[in-house]
Design a protein around this nucleic acid. Sequence first.
DNA 1: ATGCCCGACGCAGTCGGA
Length: 260
Amino acid sequence: MPFTIATWNINSVRLRAPIVRKLLEEEAPDVLCLQEIKTPVEKMPDFSDLGYGHVVARGQKGYNGVAILSKLPLEDLGDRDFADLGHARHVAARLENGVAIHNFYVPAGGDEPDRAKNVKFGQKLDYLTEMRDWFRDSRPEKAILVGDLNIAPREDDVWSHKQLLKIVSHTPIEVDHLGAVQEAGSWVDVTRKDIPEGLLYSWWSYRAKDWDAADKGRRLDHVWASSDIARSGHSSRVLRDARGWTQPSDHAPVFATFDL
DNA sequence: ATGCCCGACGCAGTCGGA
């Protein structure tokens, strides 16, 4: 049975419950992975009336938080607190077809791309290193990894490779760390398997008044699959329209479909 | 630097986002 998965950094699920509903009604993915829900799980809005009664989530007050909403039953596979930050940045669940879904919100890393001057940048690199080690030690099979990885790895994942080389999210050291995570798990970047050429973004800053015309975006949100099921992935897309919805998130949802 | 926004918390202003 084919199923569609979407990932979306929602930047407060309570504030944006109306546009989450809009996405679920109009696009009806089987699974929606959210990041930055910014709420304890008890205060998560309920979307079960739209068919999303299966929820596996980890939250905390005010910051971070990840949730997997599903039309299909989920088994909670637990969470990891990489780099011991005490943050809700990962949760995993398994579908009845055996596919494990890992939902990540990788730390943003602050402004200064130097771990000697900026603790947050060091934490981001450490988080990625611990992800790498985990996937190296427990090779993922029948798995999908999605989320806001807060890194745009390719030159055509940003509006200006040259101008962003020293900007956190596109520095070579971050790209190297993300590449090591991908290699350790033999993860396939499904979005770029489907859309191999051209500029592609999933995030546009709130600061640019006319984000659409300026189009100075970055591809921070990713859909990866373990190599055994990567070939079943297809129809990847970014729902750019959602960035222009009422009171939007600064991220747009990224979709992929798997025939499994 | 894309420009000076946006959300949580909580009631003013600070922290975090990227």
